[in-house]
Simulated scan of single mutants.
Amino acid sequence: MLDLMLPLECGGCGAPSTRWCPACATELRTRAAHPQVVAPRLDPGVPVLALGRYAGARRNAIIAVKEHGRADLVAPLAQTLRIGLDQLLTWGLIETPLTIVAAPTRAWSARRRGGDPVARVASAAAADRAGVTVTRALRLTGFARDSVGLSSSQRQRNLEGRVRVARPVAGAVILVDDVVTTGATARESVRALRGAGIAVQAVLALASA
């Protein structure tokens, strides 16, 4: 009866009566343990890695958090990110002390979504992790359009010169984003961070499109 009044469904596959099903959890955990190097069309100048393709349960969960207010899915996405971070640390690609910088988002988008979803996932992933901190050091200035539907050159022009470092960051940094597509956001973010004298080790995305 409760399911009829307040229906629950898995944020990854739509299975009824559960917020996050075991099959989707296993899919994300397994792939997160093997971060893949990807090559976006716009090279940010540092290694870019993704924890899976922007498809299936991963895509649905990211959209549910960003566009439908499914705050309950922050935890499984954060677990996925933490597994990926641990693997990069094991490989020696990144090292602690480490600062995770969340990719910038438009202020009005963050307000509409009840907060910055990338920063929320990153903060949950780094919780109680020794030597890892999270900061929203980047912000967008001026007018930047929504990137959905834009070509790689349009995305680059849309963000060019609009990413700014809002606060100082010490030590090594990894940039974290939800989805890497053309690489425009990563490229401008890395450019801004390096321009402020900040060492960026890599870009890590929950998914690549």
Rank of each mutant, 00 (worst) to 15 (best):
A15Y: 04
A15E: 14
T18W: 00
R19Q: 04
R19W: 13
R19E: 12
W20A: 07
A23N: 01
A23Q: 13
A23D: 13
C24Q: 06
T26V: 09
T26H: 01
E27F: 04
L28H: 03
L28I: 13
T30Y: 01
A32F: 09
A33I: 03
H34V: 15
P35Q: 02
P35V: 11
P35F: 02
Q36P: 00
V37Y: 10
V37G: 06
V38G: 11
A39S: 15
A39L: 14
P40R: 05
R41M: 12
R41P: 08
R41H: 14
D43K: 07
D43G: 09
G45A: 07
P47D: 04
L49H: 06
A50Y: 03
A50G: 05
A50C: 14
L51Y: 13
L51A: 14
G52T: 01
R53Q: 10
Y54D: 09
G56A: 02
G56L: 04
A57Q: 01
A57Y: 02
R59A: 08
R59V: 00
N60I: 01
I62S: 07
I62D: 00
I63C: 03
A64N: 11
A64L: 12
V65P: 01
V65T: 02
V65C: 09
K66M: 11
K66C: 08
E67C: 02
E67M: 05
G69A: 07
R70Y: 03
R70I: 10
R70T: 06
D72G: 01
L73F: 05
V74A: 12
A75L: 13
P76V: 09
P76I: 05
L77V: 10
A78S: 14
A78P: 02
Q79F: 10
T80R: 07
L81T: 11
L81I: 12
L81W: 08
L81K: 07
L81R: 05
R82T: 05
R82P: 06
G84S: 09
G84H: 06
L85N: 13
D86T: 03
Q87A: 09
Q87W: 02
Q87L: 05
L88Y: 06
L89M: 09
T90R: 07
W91A: 13
W91K: 07
G92N: 03
G92I: 09
G92S: 02
L93W: 10
T96V: 15
T99D: 11
T99S: 11
I100Y: 05
P104D: 11
T105I: 07
T105K: 02
A107M: 00
A107T: 04
S109G: 00
A110Y: 03
A110D: 15
R112T: 12
R112D: 15
R112A: 15
R113Y: 00
R113P: 02
R113D: 10
R113G: 12
R113V: 02
G114K: 07
G115N: 05
D116I: 10
D116Y: 05
P117A: 14
V118R: 04
V118A: 14
V121A: 12
A122I: 13
S123G: 15
A125L: 04
A126H: 14
D128N: 13
D128T: 09
D128V: 01
R129E: 11
R129S: 08
R129Y: 15
T133L: 07
V134H: 04
A137R: 09
A137Q: 04
A137E: 06
R139H: 12
R139N: 08
L140C: 04
T141H: 15
G142D: 02
G142Y: 05
A144G: 10
A144I: 02
R145Q: 13
D146P: 01
S147N: 08
S147L: 15
V148M: 13
